[in-house]
Amino acid sequence: MSSESIVEDRGLRAWWSRSERKVVPYVFISPFYILFIVFSVGPLIYALYLSLHRWPGTGPMRHVGLGNYTYLAGDPVFLKSLWNTVYYAVGAFLFILPLALVLALLINSTLIRIKSLFRIGYFLPILTSTVAATIMFLLIFNNEFGLINQGLASLGIPALKWLDEELVKISVLAVVTWRYTGINVLYFLTGLQSIPPELYEAAQVDGAGTWAQFRYITLPQLRPIALFVGVVTMIGSFQLFAEPMLLANGGPNDASLTIANYLYRMGFTNAKLGYGSAIGWVLALIIFGLSFIQLYLFGAFRKED
């Protein structure tokens, strides 16, 4: 070992103690970016390249420039799937999130003692395999024998066709709500748990009522987790794939088809790899734009004071 390397070592150490706080965050986040570059960026660039071509996966590619994207803008089935997807996303925000928040608040409140029963009970649906769950819901929504229609019949109400054009989106939303409410309860509970109890104690000393505490302590303190839940729900709804596929095969007449279903139908079933990639990119950009808006509205880019 030469004296040179000791000096170097000492220099390194000095440099490290000076720069540790600057370097360390990059080190901490680097595993994600390395894997992201290998397993996502490369594939995405390839998909972008494919989206400029028409190609069934074998034989020569035909370059069409932005042809796939312009075709997409006038493709009635794509527009239908876009509308369906927006419908599901709005539904998720209107049903799942408020329901999950209310359930979480109740479970977290001092009114309720047997908390774990509800936490586990609400979590059960997401543990059920999608395939098994869908079979159960096919039995529930069934025209002739379904639980719901039999229930309606016993009340003298004529049977409804839950998987037909008019109602199929509602049925899909019901399954999605059933499946994903519990996990959002869990997220909200984590958020509620992280609110320091002193805040409430101080408010009580000041004579603030339940509503005021909720409005001025709970809601603002839930902001980080609410933002998380909002973004995850939005991403999840825009990528909805399995439920409409298994319940109604995207039909009837494409009434339950999502963009992700259509992307699969074009890119795989119909072997239009280029067109499928174009749909994938448009979908990713839509989600990205909406997430950006959400983050901006929640002030995620403002510097924390």
Partner: peptide, 28 residues
Amino acid sequence: YNFPLKNFLFLVLLGSMMVPLYTIFIPL
């Protein structure tokens, strides 16, 4: 931590969740 490119890197991170699986299935 506050570090240069933090917001950008975070958006990239979020962006990675938005890539529909079937867009990159073949390359994968």
